[in-house]
Design a protein around this nucleic acid. Structure first.
Lengths: 128, 128
DNA sequence: CCGTATCCAAATAGATACTG
DNA sequence: CAGTATCTATTTGGATACGG
């Protein structure tokens, strides 16, 4: 009759899923991480290409996010010992394994926007 | 031969998905939002039950996150005009529609942890 | 070209006393 | 009970000059 347990406290299964969800968010939740991941799903890119593609990100932050993705093993950093230097960023298989999740997030986000922001173009200019 | 286009700039489709992904993250990405959502997936709860279930959250922050979830229409707030006051929080259908996504996030998070943190229990106590 | 170092701003989270 | 009001701390992001 009761659901989960008498006090509605978080049960073990929920706790474990919660922890895993939080972990996922900590990995992909950075300000530019989804952008970077979407970029790299199209194929490997050099640092400067990323910088150009991702408008508005500063060098410091871009590098920070890349380093985090790297230490989370989503991104591989390949350094070619040349002059001038060349560095390529590429998704690891773990990184590529995010694609379905990112797609689902995109789908849900689109749905949510449609449901919560019904038909903007029908309201001409916003009176107040 | 070329992929997407010549300069590897973000194309329209990627841009749209990126935007939707960012939107999803802005909705569920708060510090306690996944916790709250997992709780409410088990059923409606009163404010104080949430407060007790979610250890470590302060009142201010809990209310803030609930208000954001409410204004994003994931959570319904039901006020009973009684003394003492009673308020229940419940997922809307839009909130419930997050369940598959949260499940997938949990699955990916668990997988990622397994791949990046191999077999903790094999290292006895951590020497350094 | 590919960053790092430094400094700064903004957003987010937290503790806690108080109120209808 | 269910919050709000303050105040503070921490975390995150940003601009930009400089270095290997």
């Amino acid at each position: 009759m009761r659901k989960t347990n008498s006090t509605n406290a978080i049960n073990e299964k929920t706790l474990s899923r919660l922890c895993s969800t939080a972990h996922t968010l900590s990995v992909i939740g950075g300000r530019w991480k989804p952008t970077i991941l979407w970029c790299l799903l199209d194929g490997k890119m050099r640092y400067h290409e990323l910088k150009k593609s991702i408008k508005g990100v500063s060098e410091r932050v871009l590098v920070l996010q890349l380093r985090e993705l790297e230490s989370d093993q989503l991104v591989k950093r390949i350094i070619y010992p040349e002059v001038p230097p060349r560095v390529e960023y590429e998704l690891t298989s773990l990184g590529k394994s995010l694609e379905p999740l990112l797609n689902q997030m995109a789908s849900w986000g689109a749905l949510h926007k449609k449901k919560t922001q019904p038909a903007r173009e029908l309201e001409p200019a916003g009176v107040n």
